[in-house]
């Protein structure tokens, strides 16, 4: 009962792989976009803000279809990427990671933006008078002080990636060993007769992972806070 079946191991491994890559690769862009929204005034900022939030309000199937059209092997961006760099997102786990990253992006940006906005500008000014240029101020003062928010953004994005379904199945389909993550495997099991017991096991695995993530992030957040308080 406690040992996982090969299908479960494969789905779990894929889910973690996809989610970790989705979060890790989108984090720098997430911080950049959050910083632009929190600290800069520029023409078209509302539109930019809207575009970032779009995946949050669109049906994931729409996002998946848009990705298929643009990042598929024959898509505008996907075709170019394949021809020049040899990178393909079509029907493989990288595509699943891309879909998860896009869907989770607004959640990540929102959390980071909030924490960047709450960083005391006065403390940054103090660092500037101590000889630190803007880049150094950002990496030694702003980012460390916004760390709790960055962590929250990472956790939210990771959790959202783990549960990603609609965009993934539309973009890269449900391919065992490539794109069949936990939710997709679960969906597959519910479509066949006598799959209920296995589906239930996948549900339990999902709950365990989600809880573990939340508990770990809580512990980490507390540690960061303790470090700040001294």
């Amino acid at each position: 009962m406690l040992t996982l079946t090969p299908l479960e191991v494969e789905a779990l491994r894929l889910s973690l792989l996809v989610s970790v890559w989705a979060v890790a690769t989108s984090l720098p862009f997430g911080i950049l976009c959050a910083w632009l929204l929190a600290r800069r005034q520029f023409f078209g900022k509302s539109l930019f803000d809207g575009l970032i939030h779009l995946p949050l309000v669109l049906p994931p199937v729409v996002v998946g279809y848009a990705l298929l059209v643009s990042f598929g092997r024959k898509g505008i961006i996907g075709g170019w990427l394949y021809d020049t760099l040899g990178i393909s997102f079509a029907f493989n786990w990288k595509g699943a990671a891309l879909a998860s990253a896009v869907i989770a992006f607004p959640l990540m940006v929102r959390a980071i933006r909030l924490s960047l906005e709450s960083v005391d500008r006065g403390v940054e000014a103090a660092a500037a008078t101590l000889g630190a240029g803007p880049v150094r101020v950002f990496f030694t003062i702003t980012l460390p002080l916004a760390l709790p928010g960055v962590l929250a953004g990472v956790i939210l994005a990771f959790a959202r990636s783990l549960s990603e379904f609609g965009a993934t199945i539309t973009f890269v389909s449900n391919i065992p060993g490539e794109t069949r993550t936990l939710p997709l495997a679960l969906y597959g099991l519910t479509q066949v007769p006598s799959g209920e017991a296995a589906a239930f096991r996948l549900c339990v695995i999902s709950v365990v992972i989600a809880l573990a993530t939340l508990i770990a992030s809580d512990a980490l957040a507390r540690r960061i806070e303790r470090r700040m308080r001294g």
Binding site: D120, G122, V123, A125, A126, A127, A128, T129, L130, G131, A132, G133, I141, L145, M228, R229, G230
Partner: peptide
């Protein structure tokens, strides 16, 4: 950063 002027703020503004 290039003025070489020290600034002691009313509220300290230490790096927490």
């Amino acid at each position: 950063a290039r003025r070489r002027i020290g600034y002691v703020f009313q509220d300290g503004r230490l790096f927490p």
